[in-house]
Nucleic acid binder design. Structure first.
Length: 197
DNA sequence: ACAGCGATTGACT
DNA sequence: GTCAATCGCTGTA
């Protein structure tokens, strides 16, 4: 079966729209040990000067510059001195925007993913932004990677279109701009972090 | 220059 | 429930 990445036009749209459309799609990670396929079940949208919670709120810096660049690029940042978080850039060139991937459900290559983490619990393997990057072995090295190319990391459309309901909520862990309802997740999915419903 | 803190997690009480 | 780990950006000097 051939999995093909979404084209740049998919990512080069309004950040909120892209965030919702990413739910249920497949994040594909090719490693030397094999392929890991993970369904995206939880995301958050981050924008620019209108979003105080965003890294791109103030100005362009060496860290956030990718958010200002072209869409469909992996923006990986290091947080709290310990963890990596994976984002996909959105909007057009010069317009900041990114979607944080907060949780995934591994559908293929579970054993490979487990070798990247110490936990033996499947549910704790990928139910958080820092956890899924560790499980998929995503680090700084992937910062700036083009996710529209069929390389070691890309996003492709799911073959099966199972029905799900999208829940909209406030973003997790932010202090400024927390009133913006820009967190989206699949209702009832066990891998969603910190469910309040 | 430097102190403070963040889009988090896991270990320990 | 509490807290350490520990990098890069921001505000203040």
């Amino acid at each position: 079966m051939s999995r093909n990445p979404f084209p740049r036009t998919f990512f080069g749209r309004d950040t909120i729209t892209v965030a919702c459309d990413l739910l249920g799609q497949n994040l594909v990670r090719s490693t030397a040990a094999g392929e890991i396929v993970a369904k995206i079940v939880e995301v958050e949208a981050y924008k620019g000067s209108d979003d105080p919670a965003s890294h791109a709120y103030r100005k362009k810096t060496p860290r956030n510059r990718l958010m200002f660049g072209k869409a469909g690029i992996a923006y990986v940042y290091f947080i709290y001195g310990n963890h990596y978080c994976l984002n996909v850039t959105t909007e057009g060139e010069g317009v900041p925007g990114a979607v944080l991937i907060r949780a995934v459900e591994v559908v293929e290559g579970l054993q490979i993913a487990q070798t990247h983490r110490t936990t033996h619990s499947v549910i704790n393997l990928t139910n958080g932004p820092g956890k899924l990057t560790q499980a998929l072995a995503i680090t700084n090295a992937h910062n700036g990677l083009d996710l529209t190319l069929k390389g070691e990391l890309f996003i492709s459309q799911t073959e099966t279109s199972d029905d799900f309901e999208i829940v909209t909520d406030q973003r997790v862990g932010v202090t400024a701009g927390k009133e913006k309802p820009w967190r989206f997740y699949i209702r009832g999915n066990k891998f969603v972090s910190q469910q309040f419903v």
